[in-house]
Simulated assay, not measured.
Amino acid sequence: MASPAPTPRPGDQLASAADSTRVIVIRAPQQAAGPIECGGDPMIPAVRAPAPAPGPAGAAAGALIGKRYVDAADTLELLCTASGSGPLAYAGEPLTVKAPKALPASD
């Protein structure tokens, strides 16, 4: 198994070691508080990741493609580029889907 990714930087592409989840780091804190995890396992750089195995049919998706995920402090933001069954977490805390910005009224 490859070692976990070092401190994340914007533009880094990470992959789950356990399923097909892949993300791109959009925003990262200056000092990492812990590893970025998927399904409880640290994510690894996508270039070192093995080919993703297809998930079981009918499995609930943990990370959804095209969604942005943020931590509670809003210091880390990830864009999911390939969905998978494992939930995303940072420093042991689950990441949540970022709410879309409201568009201004056109009245």
Rank of each mutant, 00 (worst) to 15 (best):
Leu76Tyr: 00
Leu88His: 03
Val25Arg: 09
Glu37Leu: 08
Ala51Asp: 12
Gln30Ala: 15
Thr7Trp: 06
Ile24Phe: 12
Lys101Ile: 15
Gly62His: 10
Ile65Pro: 11
Ala18Leu: 12
Ala2His: 11
Gly40Pro: 03
Leu64Gln: 15
Pro35Met: 10
Ala82Lys: 11
Asp107Pro: 15
Pro104Leu: 04
Ile26Lys: 10
Pro94Leu: 04
Cys38Pro: 00
Met43Trp: 02
Val23Gln: 05
Pro8Gln: 03
Gly58Leu: 06
Thr7Cys: 11
Gly84Phe: 07
Thr21Leu: 06
Ser16Trp: 02
Ala60Tyr: 08
Gly62Asp: 08
Glu37Gly: 04
Val23Met: 03
Ala15Val: 04
Ser16His: 01
Gly34Val: 04
Lys67Arg: 15
Ala102Cys: 09
Met1Thr: 14
Ala73Phe: 08
Pro6Ala: 07
Ile44Asn: 09
Thr75Asp: 12
Gly86Thr: 09
Asp41Arg: 14
Arg48Phe: 11
Ala33Ser: 14
Lys98Ala: 10
Ser16Lys: 00
Ala2Glu: 15
Ala73Tyr: 12
Thr21Ile: 03
Arg22Ser: 11
Ala89Gln: 00
Arg27Glu: 14
Leu78Val: 01
Gly62Leu: 05
Asp74Lys: 09
Ala5Leu: 02
Pro104Ile: 02
Gln31Cys: 12
Ala46Cys: 09
Ser85Ile: 08
Gly62Asn: 09
Asp107Phe: 15
Leu79Trp: 03
Arg68Val: 09
Ala82Pro: 08
Thr7His: 11
Ala91Val: 06
Ser3Asn: 13
Pro42Asn: 00
Val70Asn: 08
Cys80Thr: 02
Pro104Gln: 01
Gly58Glu: 03
Ala15Tyr: 07
Pro35Arg: 08
Ile26Arg: 10
Ala49Tyr: 02
Ala18Glu: 08
Ile24Cys: 10
Met43Asn: 00
Ala28Leu: 05
Ser3Gly: 12
Ile26Asp: 10
Ala105Lys: 06
